[in-house]
Design a protein around this nucleic acid. Sequence first.
DNA 1: ATCCTCCCCTAC
DNA 2: TAAGGTAGGGGAGGAT
Length: 900
Amino acid sequence: MSYDGFGEYMAIKLDKQQKQHAEYLQSGGSLNQGTQKSRVLDGVTMWFDGLLGHGEGDSLLDMKRLCVEHGGVVIDMLTLNVTHIIATHLTDRKIELWKNRRIVDPAWIHESLKAGRLLPWQRYGLIQKSRASLFVPVLAQRASTSGTVSSASSAPRQNETNVDTGAAALDRIEQEAAQFKQSVLQSGKPHSPSKGRTSRSMEATRYGAPKLQDPNQPNRESSDFAMKNSATSAGFLTKYYESSRLSKISNWKSDLRDFVVQLQSESPKPAATKPGSLKTIMHIDMDCFFASVAIRERPELKNKPVVVCHSRGTGAEFNEAGPQDGSSNTNMSTSEIASCNYIARRHGVKNGMFLGKAQQLVSQYYQQQQQLANSEGRKVDEECHPTVSCVPYDFEKYDQVSKALYKILYEMGDALMVVSCDEAYIDVSSKVLERGVGQELILAEKIREDVFLATGCTASVGIGENMVIARVATKKAKPNGAFMISGDQVEQEFSSLSVGDLPGVGYVLKAQMDDLGIRTCKDLSLLSAAKCKEKFGDAVGLKLYQFCRGIDNRPLENKSRQTVGAEVNWGVRFQTTEEAQTFIRELSAEVCTRLDKSGVQGKHITLKLKKKLYDGEPHKFLGCGPCTDMSKSKSVEMPIANVAQMAKEALALFRDLNVAAPDVRGVGIHVSKLVNKGAASKGQTMLRFTSSDTKPASFGSVRDEEEDKSKSKSMSNLADETDFPVAKKPRVSAPSADTLFPASQIDWSILEHLPPDIQAEILALRNPSQPEPLAEKALDKVNEPEQHPRNIPNLKHELEPLNLIGRTTFSEVSALLKDWVASTHSPQLQDALQLREFLKALTLNWEGELCLNVIRQLGRAVDGSRWKRDEKEGWMKVVSVLKEDIGTYFEVTYGSRPKM
DNA sequence: ATCCTCCCCTAC
DNA sequence: TAAGGTAGGGGAGGAT
Ligand SMILES: Nc1ccn([C@H]2C[C@H](O)[C@@H](COP(=O)(O)OP(=O)(O)OP(=O)(O)O)O2)c(=O)n1
Ligand SMILES: [Mg+2]
Ligand SMILES: [Mg+2]
């Protein structure tokens, strides 16, 4: 087994494993009876948790044998040589005992053998925590005091931010794991075995561990204060979205994209340079954006450690000696730091870190410095502060700065790609040609100066031939600097770059690479493209292969959005199903509002839930804690057109997911398969509009990616509503469980605002004026009392479910239809009319989906009936007439006819 | 092969 | 006390 190049590392590893293997064989292992079948498990030493297999000794033995046959080592003592513990469920005690080890579900072995290669064990880890601590990177305090603000210069300088991406998250997981340890020691409550479907991940989402239990205040359930602030409280959603920074920055990004796409379509910039020619790309990013704005407003804070977060930071004292190991202080704030200035970063503070942790770091650092100063008989540096300054958010200001930034960048670039409210790529190729090659840094300085003059905040600029180079250059430029990596410098600049600094490499990928001994881009570049793809998947593998070499062919483009959603994973604490349902209705309304704002509707809805993995409150105040993520989605034929419908679908999905309300820690609703609202009647699929600079006349040209697959055709602007060429029939799910037809929920208050003729039409549809004798005789055996109210609709809710001669569920109606078809080959007009009334009512109650399913069911009944082909004709006629007639009602309800 | 569903990962 | 969102890329595995 040769690993293209990093031979030495693997050689050592293999040698070690072979020794172990030999030891095992010498120890008389009886497992090695079979023949060697593969080397998939080479390098893996396993120990099987005794409880595995629930006493099915034979299958356990088989399993072990299998492992050995495939190159693995199985030992029966949990020694330090064991690389993987195989288990299906864990007790608290074991989690505590093995918190630094890899604990993997047997599925990992099965799947690896099936795949013919060793899959990343992380995806089969029993709990995320256990993997977190395995990769603890060097989180050493950076003693470096190099805070020099760089001026524009391409000269190599000290790397200010030699920090692993996502380290804040790691800090957090570490910290919460430590707290979890305490919690286990105190509660001793065993975990229930995980027995989720194998297709569902059993591992925790990345939100830490349960809270340290305060003996005075058991955390079985939330405090009164917490409940008062939970998602069930009045006005929660509004307040939440007003305060959520992550929601804000995400939505700003969407807005900026829309805005830029719009601008480009209104006044396209001509292609600045020939396609294929060398480009100059700049990446511009505000320095500690939120914190910069905060300091701009408060110059006195300039030289102090500053963080932006919700908490005022007055909860705990950190000047006093106290627990400093991050493990046991329950009073530390769990407010997240959105942004911290570079002085704070010198203490190890990072964006995303809990405030409590940051306070601890700063105080700790100060005490160290104090001791050092004392021993040297001097005073502590003035720059060194014992406490963090906490500044609240000022979203309006961020928005202003963001707009000012984008104005400058948009005017400067031939093309612009939105990355976030504080960050963008621009193509400055033509500007560079104008001003002369070699002037890039001067140009960058001009941009930085413009931005500073316009906003009072500094930005940094990275320059390169493509996006990945520019992005990496920005890291080297920060803070308040510019940095260029020209083509001939790429290899040098990238070789020592930590893989974590590549865009797209986050926590998991970094850990996987770390496992393979890959830490720098140079390490990574030693993997062949094939090896890369094998290890990380085809797409990701290729990207990594290219990025670590500074290769990046992506054009600067802003794709139009394909999904609209809203989710809340904070403050979600339901005691009853009704509370959960109410919240889902509110969230549905929120999603509808957002769809409206974007002028789209969707034909696919997804409900996401977070289900808590443990009892007790999580470490983070009102946070979701460790959860299992679940989702269920559904396609519908007609775009979802209003809140009632959205809520209905979402609630149905909620029911399907079958999670007890008190277990829900997060809820999200997402809508995709978007269509432009005005065009819904044409069933026009929304084009994947892309503003890009890849083609001639491209800045502002709009590309339909779907169409690109066959033939390329460019359109002049967004307003050009071309029918989507192939109207693919969507796969639509049939009713899953047995669907109960709803009570009529026509909103009569809306009715009165409609023009009189339409009112009349709807009322007529709801209350058929025809006499209602109808075909009980022909259709039914049981004589049921009339259940459906026939008179003028009550303004209150009607409680009776819609029904067809008493049939209130889909399967009942199906059965009825089948009987009906079987009973005669010449359907009676009256029967057909009655069915039509039922379908009408369904459609008017936003149950078009169900209506179509009933018609289909009739079609199937006819198909499968005993009648000969010509005998079926009468029935087929009924089906087609129903389809035709129902279309009219669809127009009333949905504004367009269904596609069939 | 290609699509769909249910995830996971990443970035800000 | 606190406001852990959101959109896109992509992979695994099953259905078609
Ligand atoms: N975990 C995070 C990361 C970022 N942000 C917000 C606040 C940041 O100011 C802004 C921009 O993110 P950056 O990644 O650009 O970080 P900064 O601008 O704060 O610092 P840097 O100088 O590293 O760009 O997004 C946030 O709220 N939470
Ligand atoms: Mg920034
Ligand atoms: Mg940024």
